[in-house]
Nucleic acid binder design. Structure first.
Length: 266
DNA sequence: AGTATAACCTGTCTGC
DNA sequence: TGCAGACAGGTTATAC
């Protein structure tokens, strides 16, 4: 479910509500959430303060000083202030504040890591460039395109550009006017530059709108985001393009749906 | 090298 | 109303 804008929205809310609070209890309700630690080991964080809430690509990083919890929400993971139907994990903080990780499909993953060695944690180690970091520069981006892989698939490859998912890959390609099946290494310089610029532009707009709520994603307080109202192509198969009135098409790439305008993205 | 498919799970929607 | 099948915002292993 959540891509970079949704995870960033959650990160900001978590920081706002829980930063600097001391953890008073931790209840693991879904054992398969834990990837590299046992419940007792995780519970050793009790008594520590939540120093900061960070994000790397789609991973949330709850830093408790010496150790950090790294969580990937996958398809349906989401954080709430009140208990929902599919609770995987409960954080209790000093003062009685509680935080619930809800995850109907139970795909979410959690890792415990030493804060100083976060970069060495397996799932974080191979992540590609982050669209909002300084190393996101055009020459570097251009090098990532030196493959005949279909551009839509490349955008989903977290080892290249980290944080994009199925919604924003389609939306970004529409904004850049590039057909999703174009081989990456056949994009013109102008197309590559458009793509490079649209990636952070669309993500920023989505973050400003608190992400996209279609099925399960909601903000920490339970409110839907707003970007679903601004989608140009995702989920719009058979409807008309807002720009040119052409019928929006849907194809499958790598087992995932891709939506695009055959006219604007010829 | 690049692509497709299935698998991990549950919920929701569509069509009969 | 019931039931089967398709599909879902992610990632990974395996097979052509």
């Amino acid at each position: 479910m959540p891509e970079l804008p949704e995870v960033e929205t959650i990160r900001r809310d978590l920081a706002k509500y829980f930063k600097k609070l001391r953890l008073s209890d931790l209840v693991v309700k879904e054992r398969r959430l834990l990837q590299n630690c046992s419940p007792p080991k995780l519970r050793k964080l009790i008594g520590q303060r939540l120093e900061s809430v960070g994000r790397r690509a789609k991973f949330l990083i709850l830093d408790f000083g010496r150790h950090a919890i790294v969580i990937h929400l996958r398809m349906t993971g989401d954080f709430f202030l009140s208990e929902k139907k599919h609770t995987s994990l409960i954080f209790k903080f000093e003062g009685g504040k509680q935080l619930y990780l809800d995850d109907p499909r139970r795909f979410a993953t959690l890792y415990l890591a030493e804060s100083a060695k976060l970069n060495k944690l397996e799932p974080l180690r191979n992540l590609g460039v982050e669209p909002f970091q300084q190393n996101y520069q055009f020459p570097r981006f251009e090098k990532l395109l030196q493959t005949k892989q279909e551009i839509k698939r490349l955008l989903l490859d977290q080892r290249k550009i980290a944080g994009l998912g199925n919604i924003y890959a389609s939306e970004i390609l529409f904004a850049a006017k590039i057909h999703p099946k174009r081989p990456a290494n056949e994009l013109s310089e102008a197309e590559a530059r458009r793509l490079y610029e649209k990636i952070p532009k669309i993500l920023k707009l989505a973050i400003e709108n608190q992400g996209t709520s279609i099925a399960t994603y909601r903000t920490l307080s339970g409110e839907p985001g707003g970007f679903q109202n601004l989608l140009q192509v995702y989920g719009r198969e058979g409807e008309r393009c807002y720009a040119c009135d052409t019928i929006i098409a849907k194809i499958i790439q790598g087992g995932r749906s891709t939506y695009f305008c055959p006219q604007c993205q010829a």
